[in-house]
Design a protein around this nucleic acid. Structure first.
Lengths: 110, 110
DNA sequence: TTTATTTATCGTAATATTGCAATGTATAAA
DNA sequence: TTTATACATTGCAATATTACGATAAATAAA
């Protein structure tokens, strides 16, 4: 099928999985790391920075933009991308709660 | 293609994407939440708890086990699964570093 | 040994993802 | 207006993922 049965899970479970899907490709992880590192808009050099073809990068950027984690601003003939810090912070809250489910004192039971 | 070009990314980038892939399906998120919630081994009732067929659950469990996030112990005719707390903590370190890339004072630049 | 129970594996269908060549679109420069 | 530049979109091929019926494997109980 290749199709997740999202209707049988709650909103939080689906949200966590959607966020994680955005991070589930190394190219998107790399794009985000690069945007944080240069700490400003990126117009163009992502294709040079990462060794993938321009349409491929464009597709990955689209997915990150759809989730709201990055913003794109048209600037002349190029488009500048940068991190959406507010959205990133919101996302971090959701993911941290999920990751912090483990309690420090707990032991494995098997 | 459907095949990520992992060789062009570094180990950390690939690790983050692999961890995230494990969380990119709501059934696996739900399984992990349930294991944390009951805080003991689960033998069997995952199929009842989540509304997916037994082979499907088994497949999701296999993926989580391969990443090391859960452990399975054979107990008679059933298999008991639980969280691997040590591995979870390691995973959390990697993911937290990635999620905490944003600095509190930073503003969007576009 | 036979039967029941539980989980894993196999096989397969449906859908999703990844990657890129070709092409479209929009703006800037000439 | 023409040309160049940058990015998006389309279309398609290859591979991955998801789901589950059928079946295998392993152990416990009868």
């Amino acid at each position: 099928m290749g199709l997740a049965k999202t209707e049988m899970f709650n909103d939080l479970q689906n949200e966590i999985s959607l966020i994680s899907k955005a991070f589930s490709h190394p190219a998107r992880v790399t794009i985000l790391q690069y945007l944080f590192k240069i700490d400003s808009c990126v117009c163009g050099d992502l294709v040079n920075e990462i060794g993938l073809a321009q349409p491929t990068i464009s597709q990955h950027l689209k997915e990150l933009k759809q989730l709201g984690l990055i913003k794109g601003t048209v600037e002349g003939t190029s488009v500048c991308y940068c991190i959406n810090h507010e959205k990133w912070a919101q996302m971090k809250t959701v993911m941290s709660e999920f990751l912090d489910q483990d309690l420090p004192t707990k032991q494995d039971c098997c």
